[in-house]
Write a protein that binds this DNA or RNA. Structure first.
Lengths: 321, 321
DNA sequence: TTGCTTCGGCCAGTTTCTGACCGCAATCGA
DNA sequence: TCGATTGCGGTCAGAAACTGGCCGAAGCAA
């Protein structure tokens, strides 16, 4: 191991697999003397990576957590796991970190050897679409990362876009930002053919590809891209505002519904559940899981849906009795 | 930027944010001459990182994907996103990468500054338990990483364990391996008090903490830990083998059920769905989402459950009509 | 106490690193 | 076709670093 640069990286990598490393072994693996190893350790410390050492019979070196993220040195499997994790985090709107997840995913995918990328795709392909049914149109992670990369690097983007009426048209844009709103992804971009700012729903967008041409980011007049998307989308809100009175304590309901809705106690051991959804299957799932009696306050469509499912279930359970 | 080691890391980091970097700017950021920058780029290439460069008026450097994973240099937000992604990947049994996900998560958490770890915890705490209801007991990610780290580093572990009968006892073990089986996590460990190999269900395990004492891994007589767990658990199989005939094409059913069960076409546009579950809520969710008529072949308990839910739904939809 | 392990100063020889200067080649736009 | 821009790599000399070997000190556990 000639260069110290490469050696330091390798040392960092060894330390990240963590188990206490005895000095002599590290030195041997790196192909240097123990004295030099000590100096390397020192160098790491000077760079801010806290390497702790313990003396005595079972001593050794160990990388602890410090003030900044050290460079992560991953093996193939770990890299694949991270990519998969980020893909799900980015596409399931988990906790408000979707945009960062896409950003990180772009970075990982970018530098990932093609063979690993193929493994990620293969694993993802036979996986669950996050939640059964009711999830609405899904976004392919590959599409997201392509767009994110084009945004970041300022590369023009061409893609097919399905309009409301179902017609597909080709678009050429200067991508600006990806915005995650609710359970949907939007692309804010300067449309080169219409000479105006537009928002595109990513799930309606197919085959995005960079043209190779690079551009300098224009300033979005609206300022905040998220606000821009909200203003554009405000005209088309979620379809149903669901409100249900459930004969179960708020805590019980909350455990099931998680963040997909809000739950308020309603006295007398019951609670009020509110959700804002596009698909009625979703509140039905939740209510079925809670298993307590309830009353639908609104919308009436939910009542119809519940009746349909209820009859379906009764038919099934009676029919073959 | 004195050391070349540190500079190379920084250069890699800059290149990972990707957008084409013009040479002079990179040189300036690194505080070196352009000649030295070129040499650094060369060094990176010699280390196997493929840095592409383009000449001409809009030229610059760019890190492409190569044969091996380069060290990932993440900013705070990205690190948090990765941790969150891995936590969900590890605890939702997505695609057979759970064990690797925990391994990677351990590595990330290990070197993560405490302030970021707190952010991860905060974000995770107000997040959804992956799937509503029916998910059974969940495992805290922090518990998993503590155990994984103890396994990897060979540190003794003490924890509280809830037995079948509900009694809690303290255990002291030499942790060997974490195994993910179905939707559950198991710890294979040498029980220091019983002097024998045991498997522990991680969801029944509380407050794991390393004692600080380290040990040398014993050899598991059974050989493969996963096989060992399977043999131990085989006595307690999943409770219900569900089989349902659905009046919908296999493809439709499969889209909903994903990998949580198997679907076979059954001629005539219908299909047979098989699932192996502990909780009947789960097939009910799936069947409700499919929305097609179906017949329950087995088990009879599923019929009862469906009848109960069906009546519940009908009560709700009639009652307030 | 004894044995094991990390720690860090010192030294001298070697190697690497750096910036400056040079001409060259590729690319793009006019 | 021409010119501007940008990356490429050779050479040189001085400065800086890196390295291995040696040593005694100090912390830790049995």
């Amino acid at each position: 191991m000639a260069n110290p640069s490469a050696r330091m990286l390798r040392l960092l990598s060894l330390l990240q697999t963590h188990r206490y490393w005895p000095g002599p072994e590290l030195a041997e693996r790196l192909g240097v003397s123990e004295r030099t190893l000590r100096r390397d350790i020192d160098r790491l410390r000077e760079l801010g990576y806290p390497v702790s050492a313990s003396r005595g019979v079972a001593g050794g070196y160990q990388l602890r957590s410090g003030a900044a993220m050290p460079p992560l040195l991953l093996d193939d499997d770990e890299a694949v796991a991270i990519a998969i994790g980020l893909r799900t985090a980015a596409t399931t709107a988990l906790a408000g970190i979707e945009e960062t997840a896409v950003q990180a995913l772009t970075k990982v995918i970018q530098v990932m050897p093609p063979r690993l990328r193929r493994r990620v795709d293969a694993l993802q392909s036979h996986t669950v679409p996050a939640l059964p049914g009711a999830a609405g149109p899904t976004v392919e992670a590959g599409v997201l990362t392509t767009i994110a990369q084009a945004c970041r690097d300022g590369e023009r983007l061409r893609f097919g876009y399905t309009r409301r009426d179902g017609a597909v048209a080709s678009r050429l844009v200067e991508p600006h930002r990806l915005v995650s709103l609710g359970r949907r992804w939007y692309l804010v971009a300067w449309d080169l053919e219409r000479h105006d700012w537009r928002t595109f729903r990513v799930d309606r967008l197919t085959g995005p590809a960079t043209t190779g041409a690079r551009f300098r980011h224009r300033e979005l007049p609206a300022g905040d891209p998220a606000a821009f998307v909200r203003s554009q989308v405000a005209a088309v809100p979620t379809r149903y505002q669901v409100e249900v009175r459930v004969a179960a304590p708020a805590a019980t309901v909350e455990r099931v519904v998680g963040q997909w809705g809000t739950v308020e106690p309603d006295g007398d051991g019951s609670s009020v559940l509110r959700m804002s959804v596009d698909y009625l299957e979703w509140p039905a799932l939740v209510l079925g899981s809670v298993g307590a009696d309830f009353q639908v306050v609104q919308p009436p469509e939910l009542r119809d849906h519940l009746r349909a499912v209820g009859e379906l279930f009764l038919r099934a359970s009676d029919g073959a009795a």
